[in-house]
Simulated assay, not measured.
Amino acid sequence: MPGTEPPPPPSFRRSPARVDRQLVLAAKLRAQRSDLRRLAETRAWLGGHRAPHRRVDLTTDDGVRIAASWLPGPRARGPGVVLVHGFAASRRKPAYALLADHLAGTVDGLSLDLRGHGQSGGRCRLGADEWRDVAAGVAALRDRGTRDVVVVGVSLGATATCHALARGLDVAGVVLISGSARHHDLDLPGMRTLDGLWRHPVKRRVWQLLAGFRMDDPATIPPYPDPVDLLGGTSTPGLVVHGPDDDYFSLDHATALRDAAGGSATLWEEAPGFGHAEDGITPALCARLAAAVTTVVTDRSFDRAPGPGSDG
């Protein structure tokens, strides 16, 4: 019909003018958190798993010890998820522990501390080497008899997942939450603040001491490809999850990642209030992600997974 817009493709799930009550509440609670509470969550003094779990240690192919939590799912030798957190966080931070606990209600879970974070050894390399941590996590699940593995990467974890895919990671699907398409995009204030912190030696040192992570000087990290340049050759089903109010990476990053992966990727544009990374991890999102993992294992596609708006 003249003058009407064609419907969006199936691989794009948009949620404009929609209110997600859980995100609204989460944003309100974030605004009310004290600096001490933020520090306690970042250092994982608060948080941790409520689901049955035990600590396991992995070793990457370059010899770095990776701490992880193993969360057994409801059935033996069922599908499994490797959960990879964002920068300056850890697997025991409340939001990541919440997501891992929810996923373990459906599938086996292995939640990692990336190198330089939490209880792992090594030093953060801003995505240049973290793909090795992802590969070690997937290998650990396979050693336990898991055939169908899905990787859920958040922010830095999404970058690491893209690099692992480009190096031949064989998984049933990947979920990229608040991921960047280009590493050094300083358009938004969040990334400008980060860049100023990690490039200033004194500020970087103080930040590491406060937040409890360890990273290399960015000037010593050789250039490495952007995630958007790594997805062109993949046929692995992908789910890109992003909020319109991300203060680090705009929604353009999400669409670039979706487009780079071609027809193998689905995009969920979340409602306002999603923010960045763990900001948007609510019980409703956890439930949708658990359903998405089950869907991609069965269908080899995320297209039929319940997207934004399906949780009311």
Score class of each variant (00 low, 15 high):
residue 261 A to F: 14
residue 5 E to Q: 13
residue 13 R to T: 12
residue 42 T to V: 13
residue 51 A to K: 04
residue 60 T to S: 08
residue 292 A to K: 03
residue 241 V to W: 09
residue 93 K to N: 15
residue 66 I to R: 01
residue 286 C to A: 12
residue 289 L to C: 00
residue 291 A to F: 09
residue 6 P to T: 13
residue 190 G to L: 09
residue 19 V to M: 10
residue 244 P to G: 04
residue 310 S to H: 07
residue 142 R to D: 01
residue 280 G to C: 06
residue 154 V to M: 05
residue 130 E to N: 03
residue 288 R to C: 08
residue 295 T to V: 07
residue 83 L to K: 02
residue 83 L to I: 01
residue 279 D to Y: 01
residue 39 L to E: 10
residue 147 R to A: 15
residue 181 A to P: 06
residue 168 G to D: 11
residue 76 A to I: 08
residue 5 E to S: 15
residue 44 A to V: 11
residue 93 K to T: 14
residue 198 W to N: 08
residue 250 S to W: 07
residue 74 P to G: 03
residue 126 L to P: 07
residue 179 G to W: 01
residue 91 R to C: 00
residue 46 L to Y: 01
residue 119 Q to N: 12
residue 285 L to V: 13
residue 193 T to F: 15
residue 33 R to K: 14
residue 208 Q to D: 04
residue 244 P to R: 11
residue 117 H to Q: 08
residue 98 L to H: 08
residue 43 R to F: 12
residue 111 S to L: 03
residue 119 Q to T: 10
residue 179 G to L: 09
residue 214 R to Q: 05
residue 178 S to A: 15
residue 279 D to S: 12
residue 247 D to P: 13
residue 111 S to H: 03
residue 125 R to S: 15
residue 296 V to H: 03
residue 47 G to F: 01
residue 99 L to F: 03
residue 160 A to N: 09
residue 91 R to L: 00
residue 197 L to K: 06
residue 87 F to D: 05
residue 99 L to I: 01
residue 52 P to N: 06
residue 13 R to C: 11
residue 163 H to R: 15
residue 48 G to W: 02
residue 246 D to H: 05
residue 147 R to E: 13
residue 288 R to F: 12
residue 37 R to G: 13
residue 54 R to F: 02
residue 4 T to I: 07
residue 132 R to Q: 14
residue 190 G to W: 12
residue 37 R to Q: 14
residue 155 S to T: 06
residue 122 G to I: 07
residue 84 V to P: 05
residue 247 D to E: 13
residue 76 A to V: 07
residue 151 V to N: 03
residue 78 G to L: 07
residue 176 L to G: 06
residue 246 D to A: 08
residue 112 L to G: 05
residue 258 R to N: 08
residue 222 P to Q: 00
residue 50 R to W: 07
residue 241 V to M: 04
residue 241 V to S: 02
residue 100 A to P: 12
residue 9 P to D: 15
residue 267 L to A: 00
residue 198 W to Q: 09
residue 190 G to R: 08
residue 39 L to V: 01
residue 264 S to R: 07
residue 311 D to R: 02
residue 233 G to S: 08
residue 158 A to I: 11
residue 109 G to K: 02
residue 68 A to K: 01
residue 256 A to R: 12
residue 289 L to Y: 04
residue 252 D to G: 14
residue 43 R to H: 08
residue 43 R to A: 10
residue 46 L to H: 00
residue 226 D to G: 10
residue 306 P to T: 00
residue 95 A to P: 03
residue 241 V to P: 01
residue 7 P to N: 11
residue 121 G to Q: 06
residue 140 A to Q: 03
residue 67 A to S: 14
residue 52 P to G: 05
residue 300 R to Y: 07
residue 258 R to W: 05
residue 124 C to H: 11
residue 2 P to L: 14
residue 59 T to R: 10
residue 142 R to L: 10
residue 234 T to L: 05
residue 159 T to P: 00
residue 222 P to M: 08
residue 221 I to A: 04
residue 231 L to V: 09
residue 242 H to M: 12
residue 222 P to C: 00
residue 87 F to H: 14
residue 143 D to C: 11
residue 92 R to Y: 06
residue 187 D to S: 15
residue 128 A to R: 11
residue 141 L to T: 04
residue 12 F to L: 15
residue 245 D to N: 10
residue 15 S to K: 09
residue 180 S to L: 15
residue 187 D to Q: 14
residue 214 R to W: 05
residue 301 S to W: 03
residue 89 A to S: 15
residue 29 L to I: 13
residue 160 A to H: 04
residue 75 R to I: 11
residue 17 A to S: 14
residue 275 G to R: 06
residue 25 L to K: 13
